[in-house]
Design a protein around this nucleic acid. Structure first.
Length: 892
RNA sequence: GGGCGAAUAGCUCAGCUGGUCCAGAGCGCCUGCCUUACACGCAGGAUGUCGGGGGUUCGAAUCCCUCUUCGCCCACCA
């Protein structure tokens, strides 16, 4: 522990070793803190085959900061990690691998294919979690879940059967969203609507009785499946046609004109072609009007045998062109309009979704939504930022049934068995596999489909803890506390978890949903593989360290805002994090390198404890600043304001501790001034606090430094070091004001030196005329500091003389004068005097306004008003003095 | 078609319930420094009519209205 520290922080050398040490200490398990209140965070499961991207990086950095903060606060912090089997995505990946061998899943058959996917998942499935380790994620790996695990699969069956028994799961024949590439049904949420410019074709449909009627459509190819035309019942234009027929072009089919309230007379021509098999609205209209349904497409969206020969086998978009062309030839194309409309696309492969009539399993959602909505309205469930709660409520209020069956092989096979005997026809949902029909004893076959992956992830808050068994984990850790995820996951996962929690556990699974922003590039585009604008977090970690990555993420994470990073310029984005780590490292190196033995405690009953009278002004100041930082950082963490936490800690470490305090104590440490032991004690103490405050953000470097602080023993770790408590004795407004004046004085002299180009090594005499007893005390107390940091040869209490030199006035009205001898540039001096007078005039004007404000004068405490009056008076005086001086010098 | 968010220094953004953090941070830029923790650094500096317009108020970047420009979410007008 006393090995000398390298002059530069090299994260690569220590992060992996520290992580291994943490795992060895077993602190990621909540049991390590048996006495605290529990605090549970559920990791949004990444796809088992995923590679870590910035979105994961951001999400998990936030979770880790949160869980580390809670753990240090003494809670039994459980962060439950896991992956989901990602039905569609994973099956797609393996099918692509097979395609490379010229095979399809059908060549292998179901069992062999699933075995193949398992093999793939076993090989690659741990990758994403390993990558999270590089980030420093302190998950309880011993409890890692996978949605296709035996336990979670049992939970899926339990949930399905319970809902089935309550009549909340049903099989239905409806229009669903179908992905023609993945060859499966999708839920409404999985069909992403994107606005896109399109066309609206106006087609003439010849009337059986002569003439024609015009319908408008965005999908002309579906006309091949039309079985009717609908108009609004009150639409006078078509009143006489109702009940008559239309001769459908191309097919020659005779179809009726019907009425339906769903038709908007104002849109298009007020007449709608009805394709019950290919549009949800048309399906409803067709059902009400008793129209036939003709499915004209194959599962992969080619035209099937229901259409005329020349259309068979055509892709839907080719068929569209052909239909339009044919209408044009027939003189039946009335017109084509540009039309902006939303097209659904598969959220996994971006293929245009085809509404398709099929038999699917659904969950009846309204009864489940009710308690979930109530929890939000009661305030038991809150969202950060708050406005996201509206999205949640709106979705719940307009909930639609959830299509949960998928025509895939990779997933939880639907636990429903059908009797193969036609007379019996018994259907049973079962927790265990069935071999025989429960009704007739005959052969049964299991439903071929699998369940939506989200049907397993919505159970995770309890299934990952052992449900449906009554495990100790479930009893102890359910419900959890906070869920950290991206806003686009609200409907997929968050809402459904709340519903499942209410339904199966009788309680919401977490009380706070923290929704962070999205990682975008400088053009504000979402980072994605397809756009090639991504940043690889592992690359950043390799080059800048995990701490730097985390610092940059968290310092840019204002509540509810996105994180913009430049993929083309990692240096600009991440150097600040690395630089800060290096700064901290070197501050630590300095403090540790200047300890010459045991460090005295600064509080407590120990006989060697530093007594209050031993503190210098600087000591009291840094202690007060440290205390203020503890308060601000703690409050920021509690409010998920990670950017604020990062900022106050950064400022404390860099500006207060490094720039001022460490500079101040050097003479004491070097023995040039007494009080070295006190300075060591205070520096060590405040540095220790700063490290603890920073640990949730930069876990590695803070651990590396903290374990080297004096008094640490083998096995100590900052991970469970006590979270710093605010201390009323540490606060000192006087010390902050007094040292503030010291800083102002030093800065003023430095400004004058820079302005007049005084040689860096040269000393100058400094005259001050303190305007307050505060200033007097401060300059007296930190005389040495001022002289050293300002490079002053003398520091005298004196009025400004008439000789040439630089002037400045501090906030409290204290006048500063730096005589600069004969070789001074008159023009420059006049300009500086002018600037200073202008500055004072601005202050004076503000101050006068403030004091003229009756509300301020009457409401503020008397001494504050008096203080402000004094400031005004002394600024006036100084402004006058400087004006006189300008005249004396003959400035313009 | 609804609903929401954002417009602040060249860039990325803070600024919580209106007045001692009414102008901030980091990066970039300019000047001078390798001052024995740190050049991934130190000291100093420049830059903003806080999107436009109106209003409320003693006082607004901060509240209200409106306009403009971006972005997001939701929606069965074919």
């Amino acid at each position: 522990m006393n090995t000398p520290l390298a002059p530069q922080y090299e994260p690569q050398d220590i992060e992996a070793a520290l992580y291994a040490r943490w795992v060895g200490l077993g602190l990621f398990q909540p049991e390590s803190r048996p006495h605290g209140a529990r605090y549970v965070v559920m990791m949004p499961p990444p796809n088992v085959t995923a590679q870590l991207h910035m979105g994961h990086g951001l999400n998990n950095t936030v979770q880790d900061a949160l869980i580390r903060f809670e753990r240090m606060c003494g809670r039994q912090a459980l962060w439950l990690p896991g992956t989901d089997h990602a039905g569609i995505a994973t099956q797609n990946v393996v099918e692509r691998l097979l395609a490379a061998e010229d095979l399809t899943r059908f060549d292998l058959g179901r069992d062999a294919f699933v075995a193949r996917v398992w093999e793939y998942v076993r090989e690659t499935g741990a990758t994403i979690l390993d990558q999270l380790r590089a980030l420093g994620a302190s998950c309880d790996w011993s409890r890692t879940y996978f949605t296709l695990d035996e336990g979670l699969s049992r939970a899926v069956r339990e949930a399905f059967v319970r809902l089935y028994d309550k009549g909340l799961v049903y099989r239905g024949h409806y229009i669903i969203n179908w992905c023609p590439r993945c060859l499966t049904a999708l839920s409404n949420e999985e069909a992403e609507k994107h606005e896109a410019p399109g066309k609206l074709w106006h087609l003439r449909y010849p009337l059986a009785g002569g003439g024609h009627l015009v319908v408008a459509t965005t999908r002309p190819e579906t006309m091949l499946g039309d079985t009717g035309v609908a108009v609004h019942p009150d639409d006078a234009r078509y009143a006489s046609l109702i009940g008559t027929d239309v001769i459908l072009p191309i097919t020659g089919r005779r179809i009726p004109i019907v009425t339906d309230d769903a038709v908007d007379p104002a849109f298009g021509t007020g007449a709608v072609k009805v394709t019950p098999a290919h549009d949800p609205t048309d399906f409803e209209i067709g059902r009400r009007a008793g129209l036939a349904t003709i499915d004209v497409m194959t599962p992969d969206a080619h035209m099937n045998d229901e259409v005329p020969e020349r259309y068979r086998g055509l892709d839907r978009f080719e068929a569209r062109r052909k239909v339009v062309a044919e209408f044009e030839e027939l003189g039946l194309l009335e017109k084509v309009e540009e039309h902006q409309h939303a097209v659904g696309r598969c959220y996994r492969c971006d293929t245009v979704v085809e509404p398709r009539l099929s038999d699917q399993w659904f969950v009846r959602m309204a009864p489940l939504a009710e308690p979930a909505l109530q929890a939000y309205r009661d305030g038991r469930l809150r969202f950060i930022p708050e406005r996201r709660g509206d999205d949640y409520a709106q979705w719940m209020e307009n909930i639609r049934d959830w299509c949960i069956s998928r025509q895939l092989w990779w997933g939880h096979r639907i636990p429903v068995w059908y009797c193969e005997s036609d007379e019996c026809g018994h259907v049973a949902a079962s927790r265990t596999d069935l071999a025989r029909c429960g009704a007739c004893g005959g052969n049964v076959r299991q439903d071929e489909d699998v369940l939506d992956t989200w049907f397993s992830s919505w159970l995770v808050p309890f299934s990952a803890l052992g449900w449906p068994d009554d495990t100790p984990d479930l009893a102890h850790f359910y419900p959890g506390n906070t869920l950290v995820t991206a806003p686009e996951i609200i409907f997929f996962w968050v809402s459904r978890m709340v519903m499942a929690g209410c339904e199966f556990m009788g309680d919401i699974p977490f009380s706070t949903v923290y929704l962070h922003g999205t990682v975008r590039d400088t053009q504000h585009r979402k980072m994605s593989k397809s756009l090639g604008n991504g940043i690889d977090p592992l690359d950043v970690i390799a080059r800048y360290g995990a701490d730097a990555l985390r610092y940059v993420i968290l310092s840019g994470m204002a509540v509810g805002t996105d994180l913009i990073l430049d993929p083309a310029d990692l240096e600009t984005s991440f150097a600040p994090g690395r630089n800060f780590a290096n700064k901290l490292w070197n501050a630590g190196r300095f403090i540790l390198g200047n300890l010459d033995g045991p460090v005295r405690p600064i509080a407590g009953d120990h006989p060697d404890t530093v007594r209050p009278h031993e503190f210098t002004l600087a000591d009291r100041w840094i202690i007060a600043r440290c205390d203020a930082t503890v308060r601000e950082a703690t409050s920021a963490y509690e409010k998920f304001r990670f950017n604020d936490a990062a900022s106050v800690i950064y400022h404390f470490i860099w500006s207060d501790l490094a720039d001022w305090y460490i500079e101040q104590i050097k003479p004491r440490l070097y023995g040039d001034q007494p009080g070295g032991d006190v300075a060591r004690a205070v520096a060590t103490r405040t540095f220790d606090v700063a490290l603890r405050l920073l640990h949730p953000i930069m876990p590695f470097i803070t651990e590396a430094l903290w374990t080297r602080l004096p008094g640490r023993r083998e096995g100590d770790t900052i991970m469970i070091a006590r979270w710093p408590a605010a201390d009323d004795r540490a606060a000192s407004p006087d010390a902050e004001r007094e040292f503030g004046l010291v800083q102002q004085l030093v800065t003023a002299v430095r400004q004058i030196r820079a302005e007049y180009g005084v040689q860096p090594g040269a000393s100058v005499p400094v005259h001050v005329a303190p305007a307050s007893s505060l200033a007097e005390r401060a300059f007296d107390a930190e005389r040495g500091t001022i002289m050293r940091l300002a490079k002053a040869s003398t520091l005298a209490v004196a009025e400004a003389g008439n000789e040439p030199g630089g002037h400045a006035v501090l906030d409290d009205g204290t006048a500063v004068f730096v005589p600069l001898g004969g070789a001074i540039d008159l023009e420059r001096e006049c300009r500086r005097l002018g600037d200073e007078v202008d500055r004072l005039d601005t202050l004076l004007a503000q101050q006068e306004r403030k004091l003229a404000n009756e509300q301020f004068v009457s409401r503020a405490p008397a001494h504050v008003v008096e203080n402000e009056r004094q400031k005004l008076a002394s600024w006036r005086e100084q402004a006058g003095t400087l004006r006189d001086k300008r005249k004396l010098l003959g400035c313009g």
